[in-house]
Deep mutational scan, measured.
Amino acid sequence: TTVKLGDIKVTFDNPEKAKKYAQKLAKIYQLTVHVHGDTIHVK
């Protein structure tokens, strides 16, 4: 599962960890989390 934020891409083996990371980023940057299959976009 890949978390994308602009040019930053972080890949996790564990989808749950990816989701938590995405939510953490979203909170920090006051953005929202969008899940598209294996990719989680923070924008």
Rank of each mutant, 00 (worst) to 15 (best):
Thr1Phe: 13
Thr1Tyr: 13
Thr1Ile: 13
Thr2Phe: 07
Thr2Trp: 05
Thr2Glu: 04
Thr2Ser: 06
Thr2Arg: 05
Thr2Leu: 07
Thr2Asp: 04
Val3Tyr: 00
Val3Asn: 02
Val3Met: 01
Val3Thr: 02
Val3Trp: 00
Val3His: 02
Val3Gly: 02
Val3Gln: 02
Lys4Asp: 05
Lys4Tyr: 14
Lys4Gln: 13
Lys4Asn: 06
Leu5His: 07
Leu5Glu: 02
Leu5Val: 12
Leu5Phe: 14
Leu5Gln: 02
Leu5Tyr: 09
Leu5Gly: 02
Leu5Lys: 02
Gly6Lys: 06
Gly6Leu: 07
Gly6Ser: 04
Gly6Tyr: 08
Gly6Glu: 03
Gly6Thr: 04
Asp7Ala: 14
Asp7Gln: 14
Asp7Arg: 15
Asp7Cys: 15
Asp7Ser: 15
Asp7Asn: 15
Ile8Val: 10
Ile8Met: 11
Ile8Asp: 01
Ile8Tyr: 15
Ile8Arg: 10
Lys9Cys: 15
Lys9Gly: 05
Lys9Asp: 06
Lys9Pro: 02
Lys9Glu: 13
Lys9Tyr: 14
Lys9Phe: 12
Val10Pro: 01
Val10Ser: 02
Val10Gly: 01
Thr11Glu: 07
Thr11Pro: 04
Thr11Ala: 07
Thr11Val: 13
Thr11Ser: 10
Thr11Trp: 14
Phe12Ile: 02
Phe12Leu: 02
Phe12Met: 02
Phe12His: 00
Phe12Pro: 00
Phe12Ala: 00
Asp13Leu: 11
Asp13Thr: 11
Asp13Gly: 08
Asp13Ile: 10
Asp13Ser: 12
Asp13Phe: 08
Asp13Pro: 07
Asp13Val: 09
Asp13Lys: 11
Asn14Tyr: 04
Asn14Arg: 05
Asn14Phe: 05
Asn14Cys: 12
Asn14Trp: 06
Asn14Met: 04
Pro15Val: 11
Pro15Arg: 09
Pro15Trp: 14
Pro15Gly: 06
Pro15Tyr: 14
Pro15His: 11
Pro15Asn: 07
Glu16Asn: 07
Glu16Pro: 00
Glu16Ala: 09
Glu16Val: 09
Glu16Tyr: 07
Glu16Ile: 10
Glu16His: 08
Glu16Ser: 07
Lys17Cys: 15
Lys17Val: 11
Lys17Met: 13
Lys17Thr: 12
Ala18Gln: 00
Ala18Asn: 01
Ala18Gly: 02
Lys19Cys: 15
Lys19Gln: 10
Lys19Pro: 01
Lys19Ser: 06
Lys19Ile: 14
Lys19Leu: 15
Lys19Phe: 15
Lys19Glu: 08
Lys20Leu: 11
Lys20Ile: 10
Lys20His: 09
Lys20Trp: 11
Lys20Pro: 00
Lys20Gln: 11
Lys20Ser: 08
Lys20Val: 08
Tyr21Leu: 07
Tyr21Phe: 13
Tyr21Arg: 02
Tyr21Ile: 06
Tyr21Trp: 12
Tyr21Asn: 02
Tyr21Gln: 02
Ala22Phe: 05
Ala22Gln: 01
Ala22Cys: 08
Ala22Tyr: 04
Ala22Trp: 07
Ala22Asp: 00
Ala22Ser: 02
Gln23Val: 08
Gln23Lys: 09
Gln23Thr: 08
Gln23Trp: 08
Gln23Pro: 01
Gln23Asp: 13
Gln23His: 10
Gln23Tyr: 10
Lys24Tyr: 15
Lys24Ile: 13
Lys24Val: 11
Lys24Ser: 07
Lys24Phe: 15
Lys24Gln: 10
Leu25Met: 07
Leu25Gly: 00
Leu25His: 00
Leu25Asp: 00
Leu25Glu: 00
Leu25Cys: 12
Ala26Asn: 02
Ala26Asp: 02
Ala26Thr: 02
Ala26Met: 04
Ala26Lys: 05
Ala26Tyr: 03
Ala26Cys: 14
Ala26Gly: 04
Lys27Glu: 13
Lys27Gln: 10
Lys27Ser: 09
Lys27Thr: 08
Lys27Trp: 09
Lys27Val: 07
Lys27Gly: 06
Ile28Arg: 13
Ile28Glu: 09
Ile28Asp: 08
Ile28Cys: 15
Ile28Thr: 06
Ile28Gly: 01
Ile28Met: 13
Ile28Phe: 11
Tyr29Asn: 04
Tyr29Pro: 04
Tyr29Arg: 03
Tyr29His: 09
Tyr29Val: 04
Tyr29Gly: 05
Tyr29Thr: 05
Tyr29Leu: 12
Gln30Val: 05
Gln30Gly: 15
Gln30Pro: 04
Gln30Leu: 06
Gln30Ser: 10
Leu31Arg: 01
Leu31Gln: 03
Leu31Pro: 02
Leu31Ser: 04
Leu31His: 04
Leu31Asn: 03
Thr32Gln: 10
Thr32Glu: 11
Thr32Cys: 14
Thr32Asn: 06
Thr32Pro: 02
Thr32Asp: 07
Thr32Arg: 05
Thr32Phe: 08
Val33Thr: 04
Val33Ser: 01
Val33Leu: 10
Val33Tyr: 05
Val33Glu: 01
His34Val: 15
His34Pro: 00
His34Thr: 12
His34Ile: 14
His34Asp: 09
His34Arg: 07
Val35Lys: 05
Val35Leu: 09
Val35Phe: 11
Val35Ser: 05
Val35Arg: 04
Val35Ala: 06
His36Arg: 10
His36Leu: 13
His36Thr: 12
His36Ser: 13
His36Val: 14
His36Met: 14
His36Glu: 15
Gly37Pro: 03
Gly37Asn: 06
Gly37Glu: 06
Gly37Gln: 05
Gly37Leu: 06
Asp38Ala: 11
Asp38His: 10
Asp38Val: 08
Asp38Glu: 07
Asp38Ile: 08
Asp38Thr: 11
Asp38Gln: 10
Asp38Leu: 09
Thr39Val: 13
Thr39Phe: 09
Thr39Arg: 03
Thr39Glu: 09
Thr39Ile: 13
Ile40Thr: 01
Ile40Tyr: 07
Ile40Lys: 01
Ile40Ala: 01
Ile40Cys: 06
Ile40Phe: 07
His41Tyr: 14
His41Met: 10
His41Ile: 14
His41Lys: 05
His41Asp: 07
His41Gly: 01
His41Arg: 05
Val42Met: 08
Val42Glu: 01
Val42Phe: 10
Val42Lys: 01
Val42Thr: 02
Val42Pro: 00
Val42Tyr: 03
Lys43Gln: 12
Lys43Val: 15
